[in-house]
């Protein structure tokens, strides 16, 4: 004969039971480390390893002291180029392939999709080594291939040159991950109602006009999502550079991006010893960069697109 109010006032153990395990692990190993990292960036260590509060002096060093700021701006600029190459090459190719795959009554569509997506499944490390071998002048397989199609004189040790190493690595990454924009955009195109496309065709639009004026505006939200996913993944990238070029991101730091800079700052390299607090400062800046990108997406891009869709 318990009253409803007494049931409601009883402590909801079941909610705690469902939430606690996941939340506990998530907060302990994701939220807390991130907040602790932001906090650690405000400290420094003296010779004895004693930590003391230093305010923003790590950031001053990182952004203004030439010994630190040059690598930092170099990595940030390289990372920006890395991202722009993905935006300009990977996502348009993904869009193009998705548009082809969604042609009505296309046979083998599933097979193409499955096969083109295959490299995306493999580890970045493995893909890095695969291309390192394929582009190696020692093996000469790419050189031989270029000669066979009459472009042999253009072959170069692209991965070894300061001017071309970063672009080459970015293109390798594009090659591997083009499947992701392809899949996401393809799914979005499938969800466009057939009536809309039929109406456009009946009105006499060409396939190109239908794509440009009907399909593209409708998949803009997906393209926005693909862009922010690319942004976060690129400014968080590390494995490809580390596998192919090592932590020093050679030649002469020309392939250094934020991830490799973070790794070197934290763990040290050659003569410079690693620093926990400086590493935390670099991670904090990466966090801010990613945060700005995500906020921009949430509050500007997504909002405008929703309005457009209505």
């Amino acid at each position: 004969m318990s009253q409803p109010s007494s049931i409601q006032r009883r402590f909801p153990w079941h909610i705690l039971f469902f939430l606690a395990p996941g939340l506990l692990i998530y907060v302990t190993f994701s939220v807390y480390p991130l907040l602790d990292t932001l906090w650690l960036g405000l400290f420094q260590e003296d010779e004895t390893g004693q930590r003391f509060f230093a305010g923003i002096s790590n950031y001053k060093t990182l952004l203004l002291d030439a010994a630190w700021s040059e690598p930092f701006w170099n990595a940030l600029w390289n990372n920006t180029k890395f991202f722009l190459i993905h935006m300009l090459v990977q996502n348009p190719i993904g869009l193009f392939l998705a548009a082809l795959l969604s042609s009505p009554r296309l046979r083998l569509s599933n097979t193409y999709r499955t096969l083109i997506f295959m490299p995306t499944m493999l580890s970045v490390v493995i893909i890095g080594f695969v291309w390192q071998l394929l582009l190696s002048p020692i093996w000469g397989i790419s050189e031989g291939f270029l000669y066979s199609i009459g472009l042999g004189q253009y072959f170069d040790a692209w991965l070894g040159k300061e001017s071309s190493a970063l672009i080459t690595l970015a293109l390798i990454s594009v090659w591997q991950f083009v499947g992701i924009p392809m899949m996401l955009i393809y799914a979005a195109m499938l969800s466009i109602p057939d009536d809309l496309i039929d109406a456009s065709v009946v009105d006499g639009s060409s396939a190109w006009q239908t794509f440009w004026h009907v399909k593209l505006p409708l998949i803009l939200p997906t393209i926005g999502m693909v862009s922010i996913l690319t942004f976060v993944a690129n400014f968080n990238a590390f494995e490809l550079i580390y596998a192919v070029k090592g932590a020093l991101a050679g030649p002469n730091f020309s392939t250094d991006i934020m991830g490799t800079l973070f790794y070197r700052t934290f763990f040290g390299f050659q003569l410079q010893s690693g620093s926990i607090t400086m590493g935390a400062a670099v991670a904090t800046l990466m966090f801010l960069i990613i945060l700005v990108g995500v906020m921009l997406y949430l509050f500007v891009v997504q909002r405008r697109m929703k309005r457009f869709q209505l």
Partner: peptide, 24 residues
């Protein structure tokens, strides 16, 4: 609050907390 806290983890890479994760 909890829903938003968890959703943030989709976009913010856990890697950024590596320094503290290693300490922990």
């Amino acid at each position: 609050f909890l829903a938003v806290l968890i959703a943030m983890g989709i976009m913010i890479p856990i890697r950024l907390g590596t320094v503290s994760i290693l300490n922990l």
